[in-house]
Simulated scan of single mutants.
Amino acid sequence: MNIKPLGDRVVTKMAEAEETTQSGIILAGSAKEKPQFAEVIAVGPGGVVDGKEVKMELKAGDKVIMSKYAGTEVKLDGEEYVIISQKDVLAIVD
């Protein structure tokens, strides 16, 4: 199955949360921070969103930093994705 985002939406796959601290302490599931790094899987077409022209600046394969609690989490074919608006992407990581 494929996800095709609409408008200024972006489908991302989150990086794995850290399971140990730098000093080697193993974190419990509830102590893990939600990661802010993700890989862009699919990008919507852009166009007019809320009366404003939106040009998509992202492409599939980009590594990005996004707002910590942005988006909608979805599970498809056993994989977890987050669908966010392009404005929730803070930076592209090279």
Rank of each mutant, 00 (worst) to 15 (best):
V64D: 00
K52I: 09
V49C: 12
K13A: 04
S85H: 14
L6C: 06
V74Q: 11
D8K: 14
A70W: 01
A28P: 06
K32N: 01
T21D: 07
V10Y: 06
A15F: 03
I25R: 14
K68W: 00
G51M: 12
K75C: 11
A28C: 04
V54M: 08
M56W: 03
D88Y: 07
V49F: 15
Y69A: 04
G51Y: 03
M56H: 00
I41K: 13
T20A: 07
G29T: 08
Y69S: 02
E80L: 11
A38M: 09
E18D: 09
L76C: 14
V89C: 11
E19M: 10
V11A: 03
A91W: 08
F37W: 05
D94C: 08
K87E: 14
D77A: 12
K55M: 14
Y81G: 00
Q22M: 09
Q22N: 08
G61M: 13
V49H: 11
T72D: 07
I3R: 09
V93W: 09
K68F: 01
G46D: 12
G46T: 14
E53M: 12
E19R: 08
E18V: 05
P35F: 00
V10I: 10
G29A: 10
G7P: 02
G7T: 02
K34T: 03
L27P: 01
I65M: 13
G61K: 10
F37Y: 02
D62E: 03
V93A: 09
A60W: 06
T21N: 05
V89T: 00
K52F: 08
K34E: 05
E39N: 09
M1H: 12
V48R: 14
V49K: 14
V11D: 05
A42S: 11
K4V: 13
S30Y: 15
V49M: 13
T20I: 11
A28F: 09
E80T: 15
T20Q: 15
A31K: 15
V64E: 08
I3G: 09
M14P: 05
V40Y: 03
K32C: 00
K13R: 09
F37I: 11
I3C: 07
S85P: 06
P35R: 00
L76F: 13
K32L: 04
D94H: 15
G71M: 07
I3Q: 06
M1G: 10
E16Q: 10
P45Y: 02
P45W: 04
I25E: 12
A60T: 07
I92V: 13
I41T: 06
T20F: 04
R9K: 14
D62W: 07
V43K: 15
V49E: 11
I26L: 06
A15T: 00
K52P: 04
